[in-house]
Write a protein that binds this DNA or RNA. Structure first.
Lengths: 206, 206
DNA sequence: ACCTGAACACCGTTCAAGT
DNA sequence: ACCTGAACACCGTTCAAGT
């Protein structure tokens, strides 16, 4: 009892354990974290701001893998594409965490800083002020929607039998694995192609 | 005790109450449903397959508002646009339910039937077999991603102060309300425009 | 500073027993 | 058939008490 020689708990270990639990079960609980680390449930609260705090820590860990350097790529559309792919890849590495992150607002300064850079990039590219945020939100929806697809159970559609929905069954078997990737690529290409048309006609390169 | 003259519980009332709770709190529990309907917690289990069953009932209720008739519109791209808008509107009417529906597969026959029709529509329009499902999945991601945006808290980005992310703050204030709608419209337009280019060159109308 | 151990109000689920 | 009431194993959170 009392204080151990070497601390059992710290934020790093709590985060890692939570991510493991979510990967295994699709969810986590504070007592589960404590048990895995050999501590009492209450002890976790000395390191972390409750269950919600653990979710925030997981978000930071996952988002650390997003490569902000992609936003320095030129031209702007290649930068946005690279950012979107890096963003999605970071989430894809922890698919089952995604639903946990969807309902709480983004507070992590590192993530906000990347959005700030994205805004500057688009303004610099010549997008009108009201369009800038629309483009970013649409891109974010695209990334999260596709990432959610990865978190979905093996088959997002549970076909009762192939006879009631034969065409759907056939179409599904034709895509197979990589369906999520194909859909993301299609949507991203479509989106950036259309965004280019939003820009005032570019002057000829000098 | 025992059986009341007039039943306290049925699937309709359970579903309605669950939707109300989710609208108010963003979540629900079986005991909460029971309390609101003046029954014991255990009684709910006589009508519904546990908590997961209640989620399925909510999905069916929400999806009933999707207008499958939109898939009869011509040409195919107007049909897909109308379907996507109806789909999103149905979810938008119950924004906070969306996160609850994301992690469980679609089983509702009515929803599956609409996907079946969508597949037929795209095949009829001339899309190659491997492309059909990719297009549908991408459209679904788009709808769900945008719908999730509606479920998000007022401010998806919690800016600590306007000084650390000044451009983001400015861009955010420039979109204001309707930001979700604008982003959805942009993404949908972009997507369908690009899908048209996937099709073999159309023959001249006769 | 870090942890224990116990407490509290809440879950989801099951099931005998009642009418 | 429909509901009660009690049980069980689990949550999230708090807090005095120990070293």
């Amino acid at each position: 009892m009392g204080r151990p020689r070497t601390p059992l708990l710290d934020r790093e270990r709590i985060t890692t354990t939570a991510l493991q639990l979510v990967a295994e079960q699709g969810d986590f609980s504070v007592p589960q974290i404590a048990r895995r680390l050999g501590a009492q449930t209450g002890s976790v609260y000395h390191h972390v701001d409750g269950r919600g705090g653990v979710v925030e820590l997981m978000r930071e860990r996952v988002c650390d893998a997003i490569d902000g350097g992609t936003l320095d790529v030129e031209p702007w559309d290649r930068a946005m594409a690279a950012w979107a792919r890096s963003y999605r890849a970071a989430f894809a590495a922890h698919p089952r965490v995604i639903p946990l992150l969807m309902t709480t607002p983004v507070r992590a300064p590192k993530v906000l800083a990347q959005y700030e850079r994205a805004v500057r990039l688009l303004r610099g590219a010549g997008f009108a002020n009201p369009d800038v945020m629309t483009v970013i939100i649409a891109l974010e929806n695209l990334v999260l929607g596709s990432a959610l697809d990865l978190a979905a159970p093996e088959t997002m559609w549970e076909l009762p039998d192939d006879t009631s929905t034969p065409e759907l069954a056939r179409a599904l078997s034709a895509v197979g694995a990589g369906r999520a990737e194909a859909a993301f690529d299609l949507a991203l290409t479509a989106f950036l192609t259309h965004c280019r048309t939003l820009l005032p006609k570019a002057p000829a390169p000098d």
